[in-house]
């Protein structure tokens, strides 16, 4: 690296995907990334490498091979479980500096966004946040695209003279690949460079409950601030529609529903056939996450709520009346075949 951090970019090759797992459970976004990154490695004629960090994570490494990785690098040590920014950042940085990947992709989860900077800063790498599209151009340069200005603009971010080209990617924007048990690949255990004695933080308690995946749902009923803590009417409607429950950030922050179900810029991107927004105002940060939905319905008692601008069909009314009413009609007319899953 020279004084200004630029490097000989030709020394760098391969695409790395961070496979995020907690206690052996892999975040779906990792599989989404492996699938999308395989398109890049095919174009580049390079290897797709999964980076697995944790304790006792051989199964995760094998799953990564089945999901499309050519190789898996495994950093396995008790220091990595549960997750902490400093050990992850330090281990990841050491690997990047030694092995020189051209592109590094990390899921834009709280974990991914927490430690990505601890790799990019010491490596003086380019780091683009929350991308929704990735491509490589004819010179192999990563084109990392991300929504800007409330989703009205898609900005392409380039990193020409620094390596690696790092990006965090929003969960739910790409499809995950199916595992292929016949795929083969090399699993390599790497040296662990982190010592527990050097860590700067300690996890005292960790409680993880609902990690529902709303990104695959065909129908969604989403609750917002208008529900005022009472999700019953929305639940009733969701049952009638055989839909999954999702939420705005407001509903999550109020503690009415788990964060895993949040839709939007700092939540998930969803693409159901039907999205029903119940008592949601339609802030840009929310709408960004539902734009790929088929039909959007809004239930709101304020005729001027911005959500109506982003909906196909709206109804101005009190959700506490409209939801049960609608649910009853759907049930009575047998409009939805309810499956038990």
């Amino acid at each position: 690296m020279s004084d200004d951090g630029t490097v000989d970019v030709d020394e760098y090759s391969d695409v790395w995907v961070f496979v995020e797992s907690h206690d052996g459970d892999v975040m779906n976004v990792s599989w989404e990334l492996l699938n999308e990154a395989s398109i890049l490695t095919e174009q580049l004629g390079e290897d797709l490498v999964a980076l697995v960090v944790g304790e006792g994570c051989d199964d995760v490494a094998e799953a990564a091979i089945e999901r499309g990785a050519d190789r898996a690098l495994v950093a396995d040590d008790p220091v990595f479980e549960p997750y902490r920014a400093d050990p992850y950042g330090e281990q990841f940085r050491a690997l990047v500096e030694k092995r020189k990947p051209a592109i590094v992709l990390i899921g834009g989860t709280h974990t991914g966004r927490d430690f990505a900077g601890r790799v990019a800063v010491p490596a003086h790498a380019g780091l683009t946040a929350d991308c929704t599209e990735i491509d490589v151009d004819e010179d192999g340069l990563l084109q990392a695209r991300r929504p800007a200005f409330g989703g009205n603009v898609l900005a392409t971010i380039l990193c020409k003279d620094h390596r690696p080209q790092m990006a965090t990617i929003r969960p739910g924007v790409f499809e995950a690949s199916d595992p292929d048990p016949d795929r083969e690949g090399e699993i390599e255990r790497v040296d662990v460079v982190v010592d527990e004695a050097d860590t700067m933080s300690a996890v005292r308690e960790r409680e993880v409950g609902d990690t529902a995946d709303i990104t695959e749902a065909d129908r969604i009923v989403a609750v917002g601030g208008g529900c005022d803590g009472d999700l019953e009417p929305a639940r009733r409607l969701a049952d009638a529609l055989d839909a999954d429950l999702a939420a705005s950030r407001k509903a999550v922050d109020e503690g009415w529903i788990e964060g895993a179900r949040q839709v939007g810029q700092t939540g998930k991107t969803v693409r159901p056939d039907l999205y029903v927004a119940v008592g949601i105002s339609g802030a840009v940060q929310h709408v960004e996450g539902l734009n790929d939905s088929g039909v959007v319905v809004a239930i709101n008692n304020d005729p001027n709520a911005p959500i109506f601008e982003h909906a196909d069909y709206g109804i101005v009314g009190d959700l506490f009346e409209v939801c049960p009413d609608l649910a009853e009609r759907i049930d009575a007319e047998g409009l939805v075949e309810v499956t038990n899953d």
Binding site: G5, A120, A125, L154, T156, L158, K160, A311, D312, Y313
Partner: peptide
Amino acid sequence: PTEVGGMETVEPVERE
């Protein structure tokens, strides 16, 4: 390390 390579306006999603 990063620079903006371009900006495309995204047409708002058409809704009824």
